[in-house]
């Protein structure tokens, strides 16, 4: 112990240098180390428990404080539901018709149902800058790195790292990750990444200058994506502006998923990662 105490300054400097080295080394790591995995294995159930308890109290508290609003919302939702049912009926008819026509054309439907796994969000990044969260399913449920994560509204993000019973998910509103996307109406291609200057929204970059993208367009994942399956809704365009530095446009996008109130997500357990290197 005396030795440690005597050379404590040297030891601290060595640890600081090791930190820099570890940072550089671990930028593109694929799997958590054994220590991380063990730590995660122990800590995850506790986090799950606390999140469940606090979300239960939160929801009860919410009901008490917003009871009049909830009644109002209930009424409007009932009206909306009736309209939606009618629409679903109509769409079913169209779907049947579409199936028949597709059979005639003998092409397979591309955007079929993906196999899904339900997972709960149990912890979120303690800092205020990043948008990572942990879900309660890991490798023992068949989750792998780079699987897409969706929610009822649309795309949430992708699995960044998975341990035995937990996985870290990086969301699309984080600016360190980008998604290849296109506009559903005009087929314009671009990249969607998180926008730090408007927290909680995304920005679609590198849109062609001649693109006819306008406010209100729906943006979906494109078929060019290396990780994400095609045809998942990302969000809607709220604003289009010219990027003066690179002769392209960028669009502000409001995500289809409400990231503030996200509790349950679905992991698509089919990998779409394409491997372009020759074997």
């Amino acid at each position: 112990m005396d030795f440690l105490y005597k050379y404590r300054k040297v030891i601290f400097v060595v640890i600081l240098l090791l930190c820099v080295a570890a940072g550089i080394y671990s930028v593109n790591r694929t799997n958590p180390t054994f220590a991380e995995n063990t730590f995660g294995f122990v800590i995850t159930p506790v986090q799950g428990f606390i999140t469940n308890v606090s979300s239960w109290f939160g929801s009860k508290f919410n009901v008490i404080t917003h009871i009049s609003e909830i009644e109002e919302e209930n009424k409007t939702l009932k009206v909306q539901l009736a309209a939606k049912e009618e629409e679903i009926h109509r769409l079913n008819l169209i779907s049947d018709e579409n199936e028949k026509l597709t059979k005639l054309l003998s092409t397979s439907t591309k955007y079929s149902d993906y196999p899904k796994l339900t997972a709960n969000i149990i912890a979120k990044d303690p800092g205020n800058w990043y948008n990572l969260f942990t879900i309660d399913k890991g490798t023992n449920d068949g989750i792998e790195k780079n699987m897409a994560v969706i929610s009822s509204g649309g795309l949430v993000g992708r699995v960044m790292e998975c341990g035995f019973n937990y996985s870290k998910v990086i969301s699309i509103i984080d600016d360190t990750d980008s998604v290849s996307a296109k506009s559903i109406r005009t087929d314009d291609i671009g990249f969607v990444k998180g926008d730090l200057s408007k927290r909680g929204t995304c920005r679609m970059e590198y849109i062609d200058n001649d693109a006819e993208i306008i406010e209100g367009d729906e943006i979906i994942t494109s078929h060019l994506s290396e990780i994400y399956p095609p045809g998942i809704t990302i969000g809607y365009v709220t604003d289009v502006e010219d990027d003066k530095s690179s002769l392209s446009k960028y669009a502000s996008i409001e995500t289809a998923v409400d990231f503030k109130h996200l509790e349950t997500v679905f992991v698509i357990t089919e990998k779409f990662e394409k491997n372009y290197t020759e074997e």
Binding site: L18, C19, E36, L132
Partner: peptide, 23 residues
């Protein structure tokens, strides 16, 4: 050091930044 390592292991895209700053 302990706080930084815990946070880096569990909630950071790369290891080392929190450890460095917290020390």
């Amino acid at each position: 050091l302990i706080a930084g390592l815990l946070q880096d292991c569990f909630f950071a895209p790369y290891i080392g930044f929190y450890t460095f700053c917290y020390i």
